[in-house]
């Protein structure tokens, strides 16, 4: 992990903490947008530029716009305090959760980038996708090929989910045209 990576990790943690602690919802939304961008750059460093682009467009873009639309349509509570007060019981529960994960699960994980990790333990699978993608589908980008060709039905199911979510949103907002 480079210096850039560590700086980004600290930036992401600070942005997440600010999102949690800002009392003003508008400030929280804006800081959350910054957090999403930080995460997108972190994904790029971890060799996933496709995920990073989607996260930047959807996480930092569309989510922020939806959240802003929501507080424009509802209320933005005015407050003179900058930060939330700390909820001690919640902090205790969450602290226990993180400590258990950190002490019990973290040592059992494979090192980041370890080629002995389970994703690579059966290299024929990943390697076969990477090598045969172009012959099988005519697409050189392995991620696109898996998304649209090998797992095309899955992506179709995803479109169904988005369609269902659209219908649910219209129903909840009572905007259906044909009723």
């Amino acid at each position: 992990m480079s210096l850039v990576g560590y700086t980004l990790a600290i930036f992401v943690i600070v942005a997440a903490l600010a999102t949690a602690m800002f009392r003003d919802v508008l400030s929280a939304i804006i800081v959350f947008g910054a957090y999403s961008l930080g995460m997108a750059i972190l994904y790029t460093l971890l060799l996933a530029p496709d995920v990073a682009m989607t996260e930047a467009a959807i996480g930092a873009g569309v989510t922020t716009i939806l959240l802003l639309l929501t507080i424009a349509k509802t209320t933005r509570p005015t407050t003179d305090r900058l930060f939330e007060s700390i909820d001690v019981p919640a902090l205790f529960v969450v602290g226990a959760f993180v400590v258990v994960l950190g002490t019990q699960v973290l040592p059992e994980m494979y090192a980041v980038g370890d080629s002995e990790a389970p994703v690579w333990s059966n290299p024929e699978v990943t390697q076969a996708y990477l090598e045969q993608t172009y012959e099988d589908t005519g697409v050189q980008n392995a991620v696109t090929a898996v998304l649209a060709a090998y797992r095309g039905f899955d992506t179709f199911g995803e479109a169904v989910v988005v369609f269902a979510a659209g219908i649910a949103t219209l129903l909840v907002l009572k905007r259906e045209v044909f009723a």
């Binding site: 995920v51 989607t54 959807i58 939806l66 959240l67 639309l69 991620v143 090929a145 995803e158 988005v162």
Partner: peptide, 28 residues
């Protein structure tokens, strides 16, 4: 890097934004 987890995450991001939209509609 393995492309398979990337594809799962791409799907999850899009499904996630759809669920967020439904949640925000409920909030409105």
């Amino acid at each position: 890097a393995s492309p398979l987890p990337h594809v799962i995450v791409l799907t999850a991001i899009v499904v996630g934004i759809a669920l967020t939209a439904v949640g925000l509609a409920l909030i409105v």
